[in-house]
Design a protein around this nucleic acid. Structure first.
Length: 785
RNA sequence: AGGCCCGUAGCUCAGUUGGUUAGAGCGCUACGUUGACAUCGUAGAGGUCAGCGGUUCAAGUCCGCUCGGGCCUACCA
């Protein structure tokens, strides 16, 4: 990022000098550290800030040195000349993971290579003609009959005239192009391998700056690699050696940080052999010791680790952990933790330190234990290692997670965590991944300013669906901000109505009436489900459950049901205490997702000190109270809700104006239900805004329906059934009739009766009976009307 | 080339081991405001679950194929 900024100002790190560059980088680091801290603070992250670390802190640097030296001593880190991915813009090698494959429309150039001492020519196909200047062989498949006669021959390299031997190698595909491949060991990974196998000469024609070298010849030296391509093509055409140019779509590796196409080239780098660690990391997931969530990542994990290659860990950069290697005047390598140690090992102080730094991910791989004091046996390390769960985006599964697992197993012999929860990526409006490099990030601070931290947290948590990315929809943010508003208003309302009541640490439900027992039962079940969802990392479902409970059970029903009681019109014992107690538990359940709002409100609940006198963050997370579940109360209130809802719908279907004088008839053969409904006459009147409610069968001419075993019927003054009402009722009756036909068909099926579980069959029978009864009521209503 | 994921209401998405009538939020329509909340309430409309075939008494759910979209991995130059 710093280099990017410099480039925008027309500067480079080489031009700036090492010291000034490091200074600029440190100030950049300070600035971004400040930003990140501000973001975490405003989002309400409750971290242990006393243990905040930066990768270049002394403690972590010590861990990096220790890890490097140990791996070197074990023979797992080595220095060697290999082909690597070179980023000319950054002027450094990068690892395989930092190469991004992009589909590019290019050309496939067919070039004729004359055969020495013959009129024959062979044709090779290439996408990168400029590398031709560094060719040192032509390869064929050993069994390719077309070219057997050339095995002992030599081709003459166009424009250069170099004699190229023919070699045979299995990697050559006979069907691609002409079945012959030009071999450029210095500039192509495949060719590099082939060059090693066949002892080929290796010529560097493209330099680290992306320009052609002296070895490319006087006509090309100094040209940019892409200019060189044009010129080579031009020259080939002039000489009549360019036979064909086909359009060709292929994947080209691009430097993830630099953005330009990588230039594979041979250089001396430090590598880490991770094959052994990879095998252990692979086994950890296979044997279930390490859980990936969702486990659809297991296969990807397996594939990557099973095919892992040596990790190029050196970078030709100035910012990072310097590689702890020194060279004697004789060119001998000494790896040690300190200069003194190196001098002692080498027997001389005349040492030059390796200029390179380590890939930043090398230190990141040690994070879970280096931050706790490793390699020292500290109290922190003993107390907190291994950790439990890592939550992160799947885009750094290999960059970071796999490497932490590998190094954790290697250095501590334990997994750094037992589970990895992989979240989706937050994408922008175009579905593009947000990244610093792309510059399309949304600053959480802006979202916090507009919607509040609680709404943002709730939105991100509710949208964390396994295996899915998050597209940040402003509508969702608005919706969850409204939820926060709802919580605020509901609490404010409660506080104004509960008199001297206080939050209760526990409640004896025996003395309570049905509505109170109902909401406490719903609360207990909600707490139970939320805990369950959190355990299995379904944070989205936990959020939805809480949202539904608070808004649609607590606010829409319980608080409405409680209004007559709270105002004294139909008092019930301990209503205020129950309201406050339910709010207390609800706020605590919501606190991890909406920390600011819940703390603010909770502090205002009278009696919250009995739970915790300091902060809601320190109060225990509510568990399901077994004594509160009450199926009988739930059945009662559910029936009441069903009746109320049906009456409201009926009124809507009949298009009765809100001002219409109505009489409601409720009739049921269930004595207990009848008694309960009769006792709730005031409440029903409040919920339905109907003053006249009779617990008896309706007279003829009423619009009636059956719901939850209760016949509900409405009679409006001077309101004969109109054609519209008739149509609506007929539509409803026809819908029910359709369901009856479906159920009858199912129950008439011998196979169904024989093979379906008895409970399912019985369920269908009951359902059919209910449908028939309901249909009868609807028809009666129509007949009478 | 291989692997993974997705396709369900106008939009963004749920839908556990196959089982009655496929859900939510937003949006839309109608009605509603004397005291928690219009950042609201009540009711409602809206879906051949991408398509085809198969397994099954029963498929949004399991299997196969096709189409469409995304991602990851990969040494066809």
């Amino acid at each position: 990022m710093v280099e990017r900024q410099l480039a925008e100002q027309g500067k480079s790190r080489r031009g700036l000098g090492r010291e000034a560059f490091l200074e600029a980088t440190w100030s950049w680091k300070e600035q971004y550290h400040g930003n990140i801290r501000a973001q975490l603070d405003q989002l309400g992250a409750s971290c242990d800030w006393s243990r905040e670390r930066f990768t270049l802190d002394e403690q972590l640097s010590e861990a990096v040195l220790e890890a490097f030296v140990r791996l070197y001593d074990e023979g797992l880190i080595y220095r060697g000349e290999y082909i690597v991915n070179w980023s000319p813009n950054l002027d450094t090698a990068i690892s395989d993971l930092e190469v991004e494959m992009k589909e590019v429309r290019g050309n496939l150039y067919h070039v004729a290579y004359p055969i020495e001492g013959s009129d024959e020519r062979v044709v090779v196909a290439t996408t990168r003609p400029e590398t031709l200047l560094g060719d040192t062989a032509v390869a064929m498949h050993p069994d390719d009959e077309r070219y057997q006669h050339l095995k002992a021959a030599h081709a003459l390299l166009p424009l250069v005239g170099r004699r190229l031997p023919f070699i045979c190698d299995e990697v050559v595909e006979r069907d691609f192009g002409t079945g012959l491949v030009k071999v450029t060991p210095f500039h192509d990974p495949n060719d590099f391998e082939m060059g090693r196998r066949h002892g080929l000469e290796s010529i560097q024609v493209i330099g680290r700056d992306g320009r052609m070298t002296e070895a490319a010849g006087p006509d090309f030296a100094g040209l940019d690699r892409f200019e060189a391509r044009r010129k080579v093509v031009e020259r080939l055409a002039e000489e009549g050696l360019l036979l064909k140019v086909e359009e060709h779509v292929h994947n080209v590796g691009h430097s993830q940080r630099g953005g330009e196409p990588v230039e594979p080239l041979v250089s001396t780098q430090w590598f880490c052999d991770v094959s052994g660690m990879a095998a252990r990391a692979l086994a950890a997931v296979e044997e279930g010791e390490l859980q990936l969530v969702p486990d659809s990542w297991n296969k990807t994990w397996e594939h990557w680790l099973a095919n892992i290659r040596p990790w190029c860990i050196s970078r030709q950069l100035w910012w990072g952990h310097r590689i702890p290697a020194w060279y004697t005047p004789g060119g001998e390598v000494v790896v040690a933790r300190t200069f003194e140690e190196a001098a002692a090992k080498a027997g001389t102080e005349e040492l030059t330190r390796d200029e390179d730094v380590l890939d930043t991910w090398f230190s990141s791989a040690l994070w879970p234990f280096s931050t706790l004091g490793w390699p020292h046996d500290t109290e922190d390390f003993r107390t907190f290692y291994p950790t439990d769960v890592l939550i992160t985006g799947y885009d750094i599964l290999f960059f970071w997670v796999a490497r932490m697992v590998m190094s954790g197993l290697h250095f501590t012999d334990r997994l750094p965590f037992r589970a990895v929860h992989l979240t989706g990526l937050v994408r922008d409006a175009d579905g593009q991944k947000m990244s610093k490099t792309r510059g399309n990030t949304v600053d959480p601070l802006d979202l916090v300013a507009e919607y509040g931290a609680d709404a943002l947290r709730f939105t991100l948590t509710a949208l964390d669906i396994p295996g899915r990315d998050i597209s940040l929809d402003p509508e969702r943010l608005r919706g969850y901000r409204a939820f926060g508003n709802k919580i605020w208003n509901a609490t404010r309302f409660a506080l104004s109505r509960v008199g001297g009541a206080e939050v209760q640490p526990s409640l004896d439900t025996a003395a309570l009436e049905a509505p109170e027992r109902w909401i406490l039962s719903r609360l207990a079940k909600t707490a139970d489900e939320v805990s369950e969802k959190l355990e299995i990392f379904r944070f989205d479902e936990a959020c939805h459950r809480l949202y539904h409970f608070f808004w649609h059970e607590l606010c829409d029903w319980y608080l409405e049901i409680s209004k007559p009681a709270l105002s004294g019109d139909a008092p019930r014992p301990q209503v205020g205490e129950v309201v406050l107690t339910v709010l207390d538990r609800s706020l605590r359940l919501l606190h991890p997702v909406m920390p600011f709002l819940t703390e603010e409100l909770w502090q205002r609940l009278p009696g919250h000190e009995a739970i915790d006198s300091r902060s809601i963050a320190l109060a225990p997370y509510p568990q399901a109270e077994q004594g509160w579940t009450d199926d009988e109360a739930e059945a009662r209130i559910e029936q009441l809700i069903a009746v109320v809802t049906r009456v409201r719908s009926l009124r809507g279907e009949l298009q009765l104006p809100a001002s219409a004088e109505l009489k409601l008839f409720l009739a049921t053969e269930d004595a207990a239900a009848r008694e309960f409904l009769a006792a709730q006459r005031v409440l029903l009147g409040h919920l339905l805004r109907i003053g006249d409610i009779a617990l008896e069968a309706a007279p003829e001419g009423a619009s009636r329906d059956l719901v939850a075993g209760v016949e509900v019927a409405l009679v409006a003054e001077r309101q004969p059934m109109g054609e519209l009402d008739r149509q609506r009722l007929e539509k409803e009756a026809e819908k029910v009739a359709g369901e009856i036909r479906a159920a009858e068909a199912r129950l008439g099926n011998e196979s169904f009766l024989a093979k379906a579980p008895p409970a399912v069959v019985e369920g269908n029978r009951q359902r059919l009976a209910e449908l028939k009864e309901r249909h009868a009521h609807l028809v009666a209503s129509l007949d009478e009307g």
